[in-house]
Design a protein around this nucleic acid. Sequence first.
DNA 1: ATTCATGCAAACCATTTGCAGATCA
DNA 2: TGATCTGCAAATGGTTTGCATGAAT
Lengths: 158, 158
Amino acid sequence: MTILEQIDKINRQLTAKGYKLTSQREITLQILLENENDHLSAEEVFMLVRAKFPEIGLATVYRTLELLSELHIVEKMNFGDGVARFDLRDDSHAHMHHHLICTDCGLVKEIKDDWLSEIEKRIENEFGFKVTDHRLDFTGSFNNCTSGDCKRKSKAVS
Amino acid sequence: MTILEQIDKINRQLTAKGYKLTSQREITLQILLENENDHLSAEEVFMLVRAKFPEIGLATVYRTLELLSELHIVEKMNFGDGVARFDLRDDSHAHMHHHLICTDCGLVKEIKDDWLSEIEKRIENEFGFKVTDHRLDFTGSFNNCTSGDCKRKSKAVS
DNA sequence: ATTCATGCAAACCATTTGCAGATCA
DNA sequence: TGATCTGCAAATGGTTTGCATGAAT
């Protein structure tokens, strides 16, 4: 699916709920799509959006991210560094979206693998709990990480 | 291990690093031990501690929790409700500490089961990443949860 | 004496909100 | 026209920090 097709799909989701796809929202979506693996903070999204749309206000970015979050279009997450971070949600990867967080250099590597479907079934049976989403983060360090000087394949979280 | 024995053990960990077990810190530890499964926020810890030690300041509680967190005596976590929550860490359960978060009533149920040891081995082999800790939270809902009126076995997170 | 710890109040900073004007259906 | 949306600035609220005092070795 191209970026335009994705935006178009999201546009339909928005209008279905009575929301409008304004220029501000469209550009915010573009930024999120262009940085799909980066776990951007609201401030970072704001700066990137402002480069294309200087009049935008920070509050609008927060409101957009909040809205997209409620509609489950983006996922709001927290790595414990005091800021919320956002990622576009890819439904096909709902059960395959985990993180390796390196405590030496701060790198956050995203890994996609289906590890939990089995466990989720057991949870439903054993606890009577219907899982709609999960979060699985590992902290530790990369064997080849020379503290603070990792090859950064993803956005680092200080 | 009794509470006193646990405090004694932690006292040794503190003095080993040059920190003192002050009355404030001891009472804070007591509160954490008495509420081991409750995921208390700093404010909640503060209120409980103040009941036993009215002169204590909120900043001291924050500093104590931060200290214990750095020493890996408590675990600092975040369920996305805007406040940090704290739990005493039990090393024997390091790999068996997960959460079921009910989106209907806010209940956070803690479950202890060893699901990830296997996966952690695979991560070390496949990614060259040595796991020291992890976090596994499931969101969803309990089948018997009549929204907002769950049997609360644990501390709810609004 | 020196180092560490505390309480208080002020500062900080990410996020939210009130409001008046702009935009879209 | 009425609803939604935006930008700005102010408010909020959890957390941190500066500083002078207090405790412990």
